[in-house]
């Protein structure tokens, strides 16, 4: 990953979110995305973002970050989180997650987390809304639309 070119970091809340992100990345064929170690709890996502990511984002203006967390059935958590993101970085931060928790989505659609991640990536690249339109994911619409504008960055440098 070249930090002087557009790149994306994913900060997952837990192992389920990490596996979901892995599935997404498996579909990308890109070195421009890096999934960071899970932090263990949505509040820790914010803590880690604040302590470990903010200065890096200011140093590297082409860095974007996805905060991947569970909403634990609290839809107002999204605005709560977004309100804590510094104004100068808001444009480069994306908050995504399952409305309840990934385990609920997994049992609903009977797919592994990796398979869910793959399906979500395919939705993005095919401009479809098959899985993103699921009741547990549709609240991501605004951030998803912003993130889908980054397709060129997802596909940046390829392996093959």
């Amino acid at each position: 990953m070249n930090k002087y070119r557009p790149h994306i970091l994913v900060l997952p809340e837990d192992d389920a979110d990490r596996e979901l992100a892995n599935g997404f990345v498996l579909e990308l064929n890109s070195r421009n995305i890096q999934v960071l170690p899970p932090v263990g709890g949505w509040k820790k996502v914010l803590d880690d973002f604040d302590k470990k990511c903010v200065s890096g984002m200011r140093n590297y203006p082409l860095r974007r970050i996805v905060l991947l967390m569970d909403f634990d059935d609290r839809i107002n958590r999204l605005s709560e989180i977004e309100s804590q993101i510094p104004d100068d970085l808001k444009e480069r931060v994306y908050v995504l997650g399952v409305l309840s928790e990934p385990e609920k989505l997994r049992s609903d659609i009977n797919k592994s987390f990796e398979e869910i991640g793959e399906a979500l990536a395919n939705d993005c690249f095919n401009n479809t809304n098959k899985l993103w339109g699921h009741d547990l994911l549709k609240h991501n619409k605004a951030n998803l639309e912003r993130i889908c504008l980054l397709k060129d960055e997802w596909f940046g440098e390829t392996d093959e």
Binding site: D15, N22, G23, V35, P37, P38, F113, E114
Partner: peptide
Amino acid sequence: NEEAIRKFSNEN
């Protein structure tokens, strides 16, 4: 290696 291990999932 923890970074390598994290690139897989519980199912594989």
